[in-house]
Amino acid sequence: MNYENILVAIEERVATITINRPAKLNALNKETISDLSKAIKLLSKNEEVRAIILTGSGEKAFVAGADISEFANYTVVEGAQLAAEGQETLFDFIENLKKPVIAAVNGFALGGGLELAMACHFRVASDNAKMGLPEVTLGLIPGYGGTQRLPQLIGKGRAMEMIMTAAMISAEEAKQYGLVNHVVPQGELLSFTTVIAQKIIKNAPFAIAKAIKAINANFEDGKNGFDTEIKSFGKCFGTQDFKEGTTAFLEKRKAEFTGK
């Protein structure tokens, strides 16, 4: 499938999605959000794909925010609809995807760009990355889940400060805060992230999906994460992957998982 603003490549069961609007520093507009949503939905159904890496084109930016020109004249109703549709079709969808999605943050990740990275299951940053939520400088607040995911990742106090000051932090600061897992040189970002993805896909896909569900449940209102874990743990026992994993362990060989 051809897309206007993204590139998709699949190699050794890992899909890499590259946001490709370099002239706009990969800023998110409606078309890009739509492209991302369509691509990720297709990849979620592709049995040959076990993990997804999300990155930006060039060395300057992962995503340098939203395309402000699109919503500068929106009404209250239109603004709320913009946030609701974006969260449902892309940001929440990524967070709850059964396949792991890793953000490879190459450069600026601001506003909607940082929110997109935070929707991924975890983040790896290049050493030149800068991250922030500058929405209050526009008279707005983060609308794609930023006020919820940032405190979950770095704590309430730091999130309050970042959002209210609109300050950018460096990749190293982001690592210290727990916002990113690793910081690597720009030229090594994709190769390093791909190595992590390859480690993940050696494991049982069904179990990976259930682990994502159980971890996310701890952060959902009205959900008991322990109950979700118990039920998910039990369901793993009914899979071919469980039989293969335990048999391989007892036979002292590498397991060959099918995701069934």
Rank of each mutant, 00 (worst) to 15 (best):
I200L: 15
N181M: 14
A174L: 06
A174T: 02
V180I: 10
K199L: 14
A197S: 09
I201D: 04
V183Y: 01
I200A: 05
L189N: 07
F206N: 03
P205N: 03
H182C: 00
N181K: 14
Q176V: 11
N203E: 13
L190F: 08
L190Y: 10
I208N: 02
N181I: 08
Q176K: 15
H182W: 12
A197R: 00
G187F: 10
E188L: 14
N181Q: 14
N181R: 15
L190D: 06
I200S: 06
V183I: 09
I208S: 02
T194L: 08
K175D: 06
G178R: 13
I208M: 08
L179G: 02
I201H: 01
S191P: 01
V180P: 00
E173N: 06
T193H: 03
K199N: 15
N203I: 05
I201K: 03
P205H: 05
I196G: 00
Q176P: 00
G178M: 12
A209V: 07
I201Q: 05
Y177K: 10
E188Y: 13
K202D: 12
S191E: 13
I208L: 08
L179S: 04
A174V: 04
A207T: 10
S191Y: 05
A207G: 01
F192K: 06
A204H: 05
K199W: 12
N203V: 04
F206A: 02
N203T: 11
V183Q: 01
Q186F: 07
N181H: 07
A209C: 02
V183D: 01
P185V: 11
T193R: 08
K202E: 15
E173V: 08
A207I: 09
F192A: 09
